[in-house]
Write a protein that binds this DNA or RNA. Structure first.
Lengths: 323, 323
DNA sequence: GCTTGTTATATAACCTGTTATATATCGATC
DNA sequence: GATCGATATATAACAGGTTATATAACAAGC
């Protein structure tokens, strides 16, 4: 059924919801087939309610909601379909006419008796055999996850796991931020050269319109605090350039976050055939930056230095990124 | 969210489908919340397709079906919603105009880039924390189950795990079978007494109409091969009686199966207040039967023998069932 | 070159879950 | 005892999965 390798598996925990849903659909479809084969007039969504009535005796709608852990409309609908099959019946409570008490009919009890003896043990055994040899008690793990979700929702856990860094793509209104950030770090360590000026003045013309990209990183309340560009060079070679993060955002790993994003874009452009090679030019005094570049896979490349190093007088280090 | 104890947990593997569905709904709902919080215009069902396009490049609809493991209409619908959001676009294949190739738009690529960096690692980590300490690798187990399902469907496994025994409740057309089975075993070991004759002649009047029950067991091609009755006695005491299985069905455990069903009915009647006590009368020569009764919880009871033993001359053993 | 089966995608109808909201009744308070 | 918030159930609309079937284009054989 699953042809080739499975994308959902590759996504790890991210796609767990989709994956469990897919698995659940299959299990329910097979359970429905088994019930149909035995001639039981039931849909799989109905038997949790039947089972609840069997083990707990008559229940009100609210009690059933509580016992099954599904929404109240889900119970109301299932109830309707079971009444249509004459398997359950309802009566209003004598004391409180809002509440409806659900009980099995005799027919329902007999059907349930047959299912419990004839089919359910087989399904239970079959499902058990699916998980056998999987290296643990699957039901217990599902129970553990349900309990963990009760303690703290996935959404809450996500918020806690999340950093406040955001990626923002270039748009005209961000041109001043691009200039400001670039000026800040260049003037801090070097002096602004004509090449810098030209790019800062017209990022749209020099980068965007020529097929390049500029990304920004935003750090929560601090707003845009960093930028980095992929600028087309000779042929399909691109230069990673103008990477800088404002001093006030140090320590938030904004640089690494931004570099990751830019490299992701470079790989995507490479996959589309728009980009064939990627290099960068820098200066040996930028130790932290060079360390970061190395960490993300850039390698020192003398050939690049020779070919393009003359663009900036400050440039004495060149690196390229293996694609 | 789950009030009190959870019926689905109590059902074991039987309700695994419903339970996984419930869990998946929660995970997807939380993932949707997280995406909404970040301002991404996406529904959780869409991101498997986006992720597939991201990691595999442009895909045809069929390739996406294959990669995601969902049905083709599901992909077609998701595709429609992503096109409406301008995140993907399609083009007809040049060679085969039936096939539609899906690719990310630039906007889609940028959104995906942001999600991949800003949110997905947090969701992945959060979901991972849910399963931490559950005593095993949950993802690996899910993968194992998926693989096991590929090998053999749950339905096939169910068929193999199933015996061919069935329970059939009384109806008029089964009165002759009731008589035949009862005659067979009584006449085999004893002689038919007036009490036997009366019940055999009119099971409806003597048992059913008085609130009793008669169940039959059917063994595949052999048809109905056994029966057993719950007959109202004094007050709310019931007698388990006329239990017999035809010789040709020996070795299929039909007796145990039937007894289980009858006791289930007795417990149900007890829960409703219709039955207060249950006893049976037999003869010491019926060793196999007595052994079975003991196995299922009946205990020898001299008081019962004294009170009701006179009904049959063959009776020298009485037992009662603790409720 | 027409027919006929196969393949790729689209559409329809249904299932079962959800959330949001309506309705009816209860219970408590003024 | 009228009102008003809370509670029990019903209804409506939507989400995302399914199966079954329709439509269009390709491919192969006569």
């Amino acid at each position: 059924m699953l042809g080739g390798d499975d994308i959902l598996q590759g996504l790890g925990y991210l796609a767990l919801g989709s994956r469990l849903k897919r698995l659940a659909e299959r299990l329910q479809a097979d359970a429905a087939k088994a019930h149909a084969r035995m001639g039981y007039p039931m849909k799989p969504a109905q038997f949790p309610l039947l089972a609840a009535l069997d083990t707990r005796g008559p229940l009100t709608v609210s009690e059933a909601v509580d016992a099954l852990g599904v929404s109240q409309p889900a119970v109301t609908r299932t109830l309707g379909s079971l009444i249509a099959l004459d398997l359950v019946e309802t009566e209003r409570d004598a004391n409180d006419s809002r509440v409806k008490r659900i009980r099995l009919t005799h027919e329902g009890e007999m059907l349930l008796l047959r299912m419990k003896l004839e089919l359910w043990p087989a399904i239970d055994q079959a499902a058990g055999s699916l998980t056998a040899g999987a290296g643990g008690d699957f039901l217990a793990m599902v129970g553990h996850i349900e309990a963990a979700l009760e303690t703290q929702s996935l959404e809450q856990r996500t918020i806690e796991a999340q950093s406040d860094l955001r990626i923002v793509p270039f748009e005209k209104s961000l041109a001043p931020a691009f200039a400001e950030i670039t000026r800040a770090w260049v003037e801090d360590m070097f002096t602004l050269e004509p090449e810098d000026e030209a790019i800062i003045e017209d990022p749209t013309g020099r980068i965007i319109d020529r097929g390049g990209e500029i990304l920004f990183v935003e750090a929560g309340d601090l707003g845009v605090v960093g930028t980095c560009a992929l600028m087309p060079s000779e042929g399909k070679a691109f230069e990673l350039t103008k990477m800088g993060v404002l001093a006030r955002a140090r320590g938030k790993k904004a640089g690494a976050f931004l570099l990751e994003a830019v490299l992701e874009r470079a790989r995507s452009l490479h996959a589309k055939g728009a980009l064939e090679s990627l290099f960068l030019l820098t200066n040996a005094r930028c130790e932290a930056a060079i360390h970061l570049y190395e960490k993300y896979g850039f390698v020192h490349d003398a050939a690049v230095l020779e070919r393009s190093g003359a663009r900036y007088s400050r440039c004495d280090v060149a690196m390229s990124y293996p694609l």
